[in-house]
Design a protein around this nucleic acid. Structure first.
Length: 574
RNA sequence: UGGGGAGUCGCCAAGCGGUAAGGCAGCGGACUUUGGAUCCGCUAUUCGUAGGUUCGAAUCCUACCUCCCCAGCCA
């Protein structure tokens, strides 16, 4: 008890920030304390290969793989491939690639529920023999009628009391393919009057004469999610089977199957899935965007898919940090897309090389600068990271600056170029606007400026200050580029809101993509590889799109820089 | 008017009977050759509502309100 409070403070602040607490960690801690799973932590990420992974899946991936890492356990990547009608190899491949891209490892084995089909079948047989399952001949419509409603109990199927022998015979023949799709199902015999509808004799197996991406035509009966998931968890020795809230009602069934079978019993835990404003995060809706060509494909940079945000220029680090920041809880919530953008800026600020590029060029002639002279200035590659070094940027008499950096009649607080005003060209000189050239329509097409040789490098010998520093590019040296600017795919914060007429596509933002065909970038960017990312100073972070040609790079704007001037304009329109 | 969940700052989210963490956003200010970054301040007398228990409640009890999920041979 002699410790000095100041010392304690220092110790605390020096410690690495511990993983934030959440209810799942509490459960695991408690299980470890009581020895429920002998201190093991084994999780799994179980996607169904019926679509591409999106940012919502990233939350689950980070949770499951993160927990395994923190608790010294393992996390399996397991495909929940029990419905061949909707699943495809393309999705399996993309999912594997995306999880790896996000930065997670799972050893040499990818797991598939389909690997357990034979075992699952045997377990179904076990249930039948125990009188806990039966083959039902009712049609899908009849089963629905018999199920009752939310407030009324269901009634038992006339086939519910079939003999075990008859059930066995029928089930074997279902497997052999003697019956057409939909003609019969295997059902659990539980309780048609249960207040939990999932327990009203749920379907365990259905007949589906469809080719499975992995088992091909080996099977024509497939287990339902409820009969496959828990048992797959059991086979893999999963300790904590983490899923989303809508499966809470299924937990009694998850438990029932495992208990009836008398096999190892993992614990199912549910958490709230991620929602993000200004976008949609449901496979059904994303697939519609792709199929109806509202976007160019699964990897369209406007898509919230991992393939999409990757192409947009988001980094795995930023996404993982985002998943960490939003936390884990059980209340439905909609996170702000701004939080994600914050994470992207934070990561890219540390790592992106700075570069100059002009999106909407305005020609500037430095009238007192020699015609043929070319100077090279040293530019810092990243002020956040000196080890990234410097590069040379050529300067000459004719330049391009950003159209938005000039105003003929500047409002209050506009610090940039205007007639008679002096500004700094980054790394180069102070220039002063002396003349504004317009076309017949009165549009500003060119600026005549003078430079002050005494300000070479960007500092005035006499110590005079300038309020703005502009980015620029030398006209004779610049490379042509195409730049794609993206905005929210939807113009409504919550496009999932139900509306009287029309569906969510009615909220698609018609201006979500703006293509600038004639941007100019500094010559050091020539030949940049697809995927490489940069900060265009004062504008934002951009990355090279795979559509790039050797003679014309294509850039995607990943996210803009925070813009104080935009805020000023917005708050006091003048 | 069945069952299962959830309600703490504009948005996420800690808190687990001892007197409201943190992050994002926002607002001030410092600094600045990116109106970027960085830095420094400010922002819930109050935890869906109403009662109750307690010396003490966001935390326990009761009732009520609101929102989400479930009637696929989808997952």
């Amino acid at each position: 008890m002699t410790s000095n409070p100041d010392e304690k403070k220092q110790t605390d602040s020096a410690e690495a920030t511990p993983a934030r607490s959440n209810f799942i960690r509490d459960i695991i801690d408690e299980d470890n304390r009581t020895g429920k799973f002998d201190g093991r932590v084994q999780t799994r990420f179980p996607p169904e290969p019926n679509g591409y992974l999106h940012i919502g899946h990233a939350k689950s991936i980070c949770l499951n793989f993160g927990l395994a890492a923190d608790y010294n356990g393992k996390c399996n990547l397991r495909f929940d491939d029990t419905n061949p009608a909707k699943e495809e190899q393309e999705y399996i491949d993309a999912i594997i690639e995306n999880v790896r891209w996000l930065g997670f490892e799972w050893g040499d084995k990818v797991f598939y529920a389909s690997d357990y089909f034979e075992q699952l079948f045997q377990w179904a047989v076990q249930l039948i023999k125990a009188g806990k399952a039966y083959v039902d001949d009712l049609t899908a419509d009849q089963i629905r009628e018999y199920r009752g409603t939310l407030t009324q109990p269901g009634k038992e199927s006339p086939h519910r009391s079939r003999s075990i022998d008859e059930n066995m015979d029928l089930f074997e023949r279902m497997r052999k393919g003697e019956f057409p799709d939909g003609s019969r199902v295997l059902r659990a015999k539980i309780d048609m009057a249960s207040p939990n509808i999932n327990l009203r004799d749920p379907v365990l197996y259905r007949i589906l004469h469809a080719e499975h991406p992995r088992t091909r035509d080996k099977w024509c009966i497939y287990p339902m999610y409820d009969f496959a998931h828990g048992q797959s968890d059991s086979i893999e020795g999963i300790t904590h089977s983490i899923c989303t809230l809508e499966f809470e009602d299924h937990r009694p069934l998850y438990d029932w199957c495992l208990d009836q079978l008398g096999i190892y019993h993992p614990k199912q835990i549910e958490f709230a899935r991620l929602n993000l404003n200004y976008t949609v995060l449901s496979k059904r809706k994303l697939i519609k965007l792709v199929q109806d060509k509202h976007v160019r494909g699964w990897d369209d940079p406007r898509m919230p898919t991992l393939a999409g945000v990757r192409r947009l220029g988001y980094t795995p680090e930023a996404i993982r940090n985002f998943c960490d920041l939003i936390g884990i809880a059980k209340s439905n919530s909609i996170a702000e897309i701004g939080m994600l953008q914050y994470c992207v800026r934070q990561d890219l600020n540390k790592r992106a090389q700075r570069v100059m590029g002009v999106l909407k060029p305005l020609r500037v002639v430095i009238t007192n600068y020699p015609e043929d002279k070319v100077e090279e200035f040293d530019a810092v590659n990243n002020p956040e990271d000196p080890t990234m070094g410097t590069r040379k940027v050529p300067f000459s008499r004719v330049l391009y600056v950003e159209q938005e950096d000039f105003m003929e009649n500047p409002p209050n607080k506009f610090y940039r170029l205007s007639p008679g005003r002096e500004v700094r060209l980054r790394y180069a000189y102070f220039i002063k606007c002396v003349d504004v050239i317009k076309d017949e329509q009165g549009n500003v097409v060119e600026l005549h400026c003078t430079y002050d040789p005494e300000t070479r490098g960007g500092d005035a010998a006499d110590g005079r200050k300038v309020k703005a520093t502009l980015h620029w590019v030398s006209a004779n040296h610049a490379q042509a580029a195409e730049v794609r600017l993206y905005d929210h795919l939807f113009d409504r914060a919550n496009p999932n809101e139900e509306v009287e007429d029309g569906d969510f596509t009615a909220f698609i933002n018609p201006n979500s993509l703006q293509v600038l065909e004639s941007a100019w970038i500094e010559p050091s960017l020539a030949g940049a590889a697809a995927g490489s990312f940069y900060q265009f100073e004062r504008l934002g972070y951009f990355c090279v799109d795979p559509d790039s040609k050797t003679d014309k790079l294509v850039f995607n704007r990943t996210v803009s820089l925070k813009d104080e001037w935009a805020k000023v304009q917005k708050n006091q329109p003048s």
